[in-house]
Design a protein around this nucleic acid. Sequence first.
DNA 1: ATGGCTCATACGATGAGA
Length: 263
Amino acid sequence: MRIATWNINGIKARIDNLTNWLSNEKPDIVCLQEIKSVDEAFPRDKIEELGYHVETHGQKGFNGVALISAKSPDEISRGLPGDDDDIQARFIEGVYAVKGGVIRIASIYLPNGNPVDSEKYPYKLKWMARLAGHAEERLALEEPLILAGDYNVIPRPSDCHDPAAWAGDALFLPQTRAAFCKLLNLGLYDAVSGMNDTSGQYTFWDYQAGAWQKNNGIRIDHMLMSAEAADRIDSVSIHKNTRSWEKPSDHVPVVCEINYDWA
DNA sequence: ATGGCTCATACGATGAGA
């Protein structure tokens, strides 16, 4: 089974890129972030034409996540538990029947958190604590679990081109990295860096200032997995070439080959 | 370079992103 995550940066602006990529790569399940669309306006027809099932959790203007799958999920839940007042659409979770059981997959768009002296940074840290609480609950199920998405966290200095430039940024502050470590310490496996030498490997390049041409990138799109899922990984790769396409997203897909088959 | 570009909203700036 091929499972992917991609911050698409606007589904309406990126639908042709996405359908081309789906046709070429034929992933089984794709976690999308930043669809920037309400559910009703999501161009689901063009994805369904390729034989996929679509589940969205959108909002007006920004944020928004989705799950695309070759087969329908058994269950879908929208929104990260833990704060009924949080209306930002940043989390959707699906359960899919596979041979021998189920696989549970969440598409995650973790808050950016900048500027750090605003209310946005405490919101980020609180969201990360809520995610840890939810992950702990799900890990207790002892299922294959994949939490994939745009974490807006640079885990280590080698995950960015210019660490000094990120020193005071919400993506790289010690507290942010500590909160990410806390997630891992629950027993989640960091599949991208675990399966690859990720030093200098990035998943995001800014549109500005020739960042792509200079390879001035950061690695902030991650796949965290329970042991049940991690035990079956064959490979994980970063689809860097999509960043050179016409009208690219500023993020590229991360793809995992995992030894599960549809039920 | 003091965020240099892009998206969505809505039809001209502005907020948001990282």
